[in-house]
Nucleic acid binder design. Structure first.
Lengths: 247, 247
DNA sequence: CGCACACTTGAACCCCCTCAACCCAAGTGG
DNA sequence: CCACTTGGGTTGAGGGGGTTCAAGTGTGCG
């Protein structure tokens, strides 16, 4: 389970001041810290790299760290004892991980492609909060937007059809991850069909069939297994919104 | 839509100092405010009553208020244009409502039994936060525990069977709402079967059949439509945890 | 008594799941 | 170079859990 643990970053050049040169800072909670105070942030930050497949947060373990994803993508998930898995979300670059009031994690996190994180201990984050109250505001804002996303996902899981789920996923992943071109019509999917299925409450076969159907209708194209071209965005949007009859 | 709007509380006796005598304060975010500062809290609080059926938060509207439920129960839900509904949660006494960073509500709220709320405007809550930083901490804690509940609900909606969903619901409702006796074996369900169904991603018929099946097996009893007696808690717990074979 | 409303129960159906075969690309090793 | 393996993806056939449709029960209330 714990093989391939996070390796220490090879410090190279500008990475001596990781926070000052961090290009995801403004997109993350760390944006709450002013330029001149970055040294304090950097002092308590640890950078870690994880290989694909590495589970770096395990549900039920003591929540000692907070994480900020600075490279790659992770899946967040919960398991049932018999192996059924629900992916509650994907954490792309800039995503803050580990919000927990109780002292154990409520979910697991696994790198689905090589991941780099910036992590802090609970204590150190708390010390930062005392010094920079704006940080807490930022954390609250993060928690709220995650809550909104979770509610949207509940609607999807509880009430949408397979076709609507896949359409919703394609649109929201493009918008949320930023892994797409300027119009978000060409998106990169770093996760497998199986991980998409576990996110949408479907099976891998249903996801595959649904994508095939969309492709056959000319709504999307799939240049490769990890890329999707959106050809008919209005059609996908109507499906995702639940406006379309079961055509 | 807006008939039966919140009526002004008839101020009677001790209700001139509502916060000082509020018996849900310690259970809610207001517990962050010290006794001696309660006057300031009371000064910005407004009490409102809503009848059963009253929608007092509407998805998409400007999020002007924050609410604290002090009586009764509300359902929180999202709708699809064709009427499909997902109940994302139930807000019982002590529940804080309206967390939103964006300025519109992401869900609607409807009183499912007569509800009393204590509400604040965004501005006033913000002013309170500036004065009492502990309040923000409390809000963050609230948001985190809601997030944990939402993740659990995603697991339920995405991967559990109807039987497991109903079992999970009975146990979690008892624990979360406090609407039960000392061992939580006799619980009051203020919501209809239809609202349970919309919470669990099922139909009303499936909820009914599942409860009937549990009753036939002697796992629960239903003295009335709004009451459930848990007779075999270990059985329900195994089901809810996903430990039990499809017996 | 009659109506409204929530709940229950039965029967038929269907969307999605299960099971299974197959395709395809990327290694890997001889 | 090719045989073999491995992992992800696709497609087909059949089955099942939950839905849909419909009828029936119970209860509070005028």
């Amino acid at each position: 389970m714990h093989t391939g643990a996070g390796r220490r970053l090879v410090v190279a050049g500008h990475e001596r001041e990781p926070c000052a040169h961090c290009d995801v800072r403004q997109r993350s909670v760390c944006g709450a810290i002013l330029e001149e105070d970055l040294a304090q942030l950097a002092a308590v930050a640890e950078i870690r790299d994880y290989d694909r497949g590495k589970v770096f947060i395990e549900e039920g373990e003591r929540a000692q760290y907070f994480y900020n994803v600075t490279r790659g993508t992770a899946k967040l998930f919960k398991l049932l004892p018999d192996g059924r898995q629900q992916v509650t979300g994907f954490a792309a670059i800039g995503h803050f991980l580990g919000l927990a009031v109780v002292d154990t994690y409520a979910f697991s996190a696994e790198a689905i492609e090589p991941v780099r994180v910036c992590r802090f201990t609970r204590n150190k984050l708390h010390a930062l909060i005392v010094e920079f109250p704006a940080l807490e505001e930022r954390l609250l804002a993060t928690a709220c937007s995650e809550l909104v996303a979770a509610q949207e996902q509940m609607l999807l899981l509880g009430r949408k059809t397979a076709l609507e789920r896949v359409a919703s996923f394609l649109l929201s992943w493009g918008a949320a991850s930023g892994m797409c071109d300027e119009h978000c019509n060409r998106l990169k999917l770093p996760m497998t069909r199986s991980e998409i299925a576990d996110h949408l409450g479907l099976t891998i076969e249903t996801v595959s069939r649904t994508l095939s159907r969309m492709r056959a209708q000319g709504r999307i194209a799939t240049p490769s297994n990890t890329e999707i071209l959106i050809l008919d965005r209005p059609w996908l949007e109507e499906l995702a919104a639940g406006t379309m009859l079961p055509a």
